[in-house]
């Protein structure tokens, strides 16, 4: 198992996409940190970019990697290994590669320029988001036989979580602004890993005060460790649930 994970992982590193991705993140964070005297503000700008790039790359990379290693998976499946073990290895390697990219690209510069819990939480939260996107991408690619179609669906899902979902929230909040929607808003946020990770990071930054600007519930939620624990927990669910669905599909899949 360990050896298989490290083989798949090394294979990913050698594809250079992961390295290019890590370097891109590194470049962006270094530039943003050096542009602004206030590292807290730079962290926010980095968040703005990471929240677009990380889910996109995580999803597309995971999808493409799955399809490209299809025949290799076939070969592995002819070996005395259970299907779940094989998918676990694939996912573990994906997690390792994506997390490594985030650690080098975002982790090193933020801890260098702005050591503290804010940076730490940003890295943790962005990494969790990245893994969640990888799990969703695996689920999509296992359930979709055709490569082009799989990549297309991944892109659509990314687009949905990045933009359309927030648009829907906006629409709902506006249509029902006469009703008390505080709890509902929080519940809605839990349905989108990108929003969740954004909110988790914001909870760590001063800016969270703005989010609790009105409304006792939001204030109590965003002002406490409980809020942080809750968002992180749901974010982890967003990794575990898609992955276990992916496992379930993979066990029954015809190669």
């Amino acid at each position: 198992m360990k050896k298989l994970i490290s083989y798949i992982f090394m294979d990913m590193l050698k594809s250079r996409i992961i390295i290019a991705y890590a370097l891109f993140l590194l470049m962006v964070s270094l530039v943003l940190f050096s542009l602004d005297d206030n590292p807290g503000k730079s962290l926010l700008s980095i968040l703005n970019i990471a929240i677009i790039v990380v889910p996109l790359v995580s999803m597309i990379f995971s999808t493409i990697h799955y399809y490209n290693s299809y025949e290799f998976l076939e070969l592995l499946l002819a070996q005395p290994m259970s299907r779940s073990a094989i998918l676990w290895c694939e996912f573990a390697a994906l997690c390792a590669a994506l997390t490594l990219a985030i650690l080098t690209g975002l982790g090193i510069p933020s801890l260098l320029y702005f050591p503290g819990t804010e940076s730490l939480w940003m890295i943790v939260s962005i990494s969790l988001l990245s893994l969640s996107c990888a799990a969703i991408a695996l689920l999509i690619s296992i359930r979709t036989r055709d490569k082009a179609r799989g990549i297309g669906i991944s892109l659509l899902v990314w687009f949905y979580f990045s933009l359309i979902f927030d648009g829907l929230i906006l629409l709902i909040l506006f249509s029902f602004s006469d009703y008390p929607l505080e709890k509902f808003t929080l519940a809605l946020i839990a349905l989108n890993p990108i929003d969740l990770s954004r909110v988790t990071i914001m909870l760590q930054l001063d800016i969270s005060a703005l989010m609790g600007y009105t409304g006792a519930l939001l204030k109590s939620f965003f002002g406490t460790a409980y809020g942080l624990a809750a968002t992180t927990f749901v974010l982890i669910l967003w990794i575990l649930v898609p992955f276990s669905l992916a496992l379930k599909s993979f066990r029954k899949k015809d190669m």
Binding site: L170, S177, V199
Partner: peptide, 13 residues
Amino acid sequence: NDPNCMILLRSIL
């Protein structure tokens, strides 16, 4: 207009 929308602060949308 609706302070609940603050939850979307810094989102891509």
